[in-house]
Nucleic acid binder design. Structure first.
Lengths: 164, 164
DNA sequence: CGCTTCTTTCAGAAATTTGTGAAGTTAAGG
DNA sequence: CCTTAACTTCACAAATTTCTGAAAGAAGCG
C-alpha cells in the first residue's frame, strides 16, 4: 500500500492534490513554494506541520520552507506556533484563512486608491481623464465597503452550516 | 510649459501618475508592461490610444506593446478596435473595465473549486483534511454568489452617481 | 553556561521571465 | 497585384527571481 509521511494516508493521493492545487494558485500569481506549502498544509491530517515535515514531503530545503512560510504568515494564510518546550515551530492553516487573506487585500486597495486620488488632483477633476479616474476610484471605494459586509455575511453563513 | 504628446496636457504629471499607479499594479501581481500600458490609457485624454502612441509615450518597442495589449485584452481590461479604413488599431479603456475584470476572475475561482472537489473526493469527505477542504470550497462558492450580487449593486450605484 | 537542535540569513548558481530587434504576416490603397 | 503600413511572432540577450548549501543566529536543556 502507498502510505507514509501522512501517517496512514495515501501519500500519492495527497501529493497529487498538493501539486494540482498549488499549480492553480501559482497560475493566479502566488509564489510556487508558498503555494506548495499551503496546499500541503491544507491537505494534511491535522492542518499543522513542522518545517521538517514540509521539507520532507515537498522535497525542498529548509531555506525554501522558511521563505514560503514567511510569505504565508505575512499574508495571513497560515499562522506560526511554537510547540511549548521545543525549538520546533509548527505552521497551521485555519478554517478561515481565506477570510483573513481577503480582508487583508484591503491594504492593496488603499494604495491603489491613494495613487488614483493623486492622479485625479494632478490631472484635474474636470478633465476627461480625471473623471475616468474618479469613477475608477469610486468603484474601489464601493468594493471596499461591500467586501466588509460580505465577510460579515460569510461568518453568519458559516456558523449556520458548519457550526462555530 | 511642459506639454506634448497628450495634446495640451502636462506630460510630466501624466507620466508621474502612470508610473506610480503602474507600480502599485505590478506589486499586486500584474506584468510590468501591461500595468504601464493600462495606466497610460487610463490617464489619456480620450481613453483611447494607438500602438504607436503607447510606444512613444512609454518608450517601449512595438513588440512590448503587442504583448501587453494581448494580456490586457484577454483579461478584459482593455478592448481593441480597428479605426475604419486604416491598419491602425486603437486600444480603449472603458469606465467599467474593473467590473469586467472582476467578473472574469470567476474562471479562476472555478478552477480552484474543481481542484478542491477533486481533493475532497480523493482524500475522503469524512477525513479531517477532507472536511477542511470542503469548508474552503464552501467559502469560494459563497464568494462567487456574492460577487455576482455585488456587481449588480454596483451597476445601480453607478447609474445613480454618474448617470448611465 | 555551553551543547545541541532548529530556524533564518546570505551569496551564488540555475532557471525563468522580460523586452528587444528583426523577420514574418496581414490587409489597405493605389 | 504590388506596395506599403501596421501588428505579431520568434530567437536571443539581459535582468530578475528562485532555490540551495553553508554559515550564523536563537533557544531549550542539561
Amino acid at each position: 500500500m502507498t502510505e507514509a509521511a501522512g501517517g496512514g494516508r495515501d501519500a500519492e493521493a495527497v501529493s497529487k492534490f498538493v501539486e494540482s492545487f498549488a499549480a492553480q494558485l501559482v497560475e493566479a500569481g502566488m509564489q510556487r513554494m508558498a503555494a506548495r506549502v499551503f496546499a500541503a498544509l491544507l491537505s494534511s491530517d491535522k492542518g499543522v506541520m513542522t518545517s521538517a515535515e514540509l521539507g520532507e514531503q515537498l522535497q525542498i530545503s529548509p531555506a525554501a520552507v522558511s521563505g514560503a512560510v514567511r510569505y504565508l504568515a505575512q499574508t495571513h494564510m497560515v499562522s506560526r506556533e511554537r510547540e511549548p518546550g521545543s525549538r520546533r515551530e509548527r505552521y497551521r492553516v485555519h478554517g478561515d484563512q481565506w477570510y483573513e487573506a481577503l480582508t487583508n487585500r484591503e491594504a492593496v486597495l488603499k494604495r491603489w486608491e491613494a495613487a488614483l486620488r493623486e492622479g485625479v488632483s494632478s490631472l484635474g477633476a474636470d478633465t476627461p481623464a480625471g473623471r475616468r479616474m474618479a469613477e475608477t476610484l469610486a468603484f474601489f471605494e464601493f468594493i471596499e465597503r461591500e467586501v466588509a459586509a460580505m465577510m460579515e455575511r460569510w461568518r453568519a453563513h458559516r456558523e449556520e452550516r458548519f457550526g462555530k
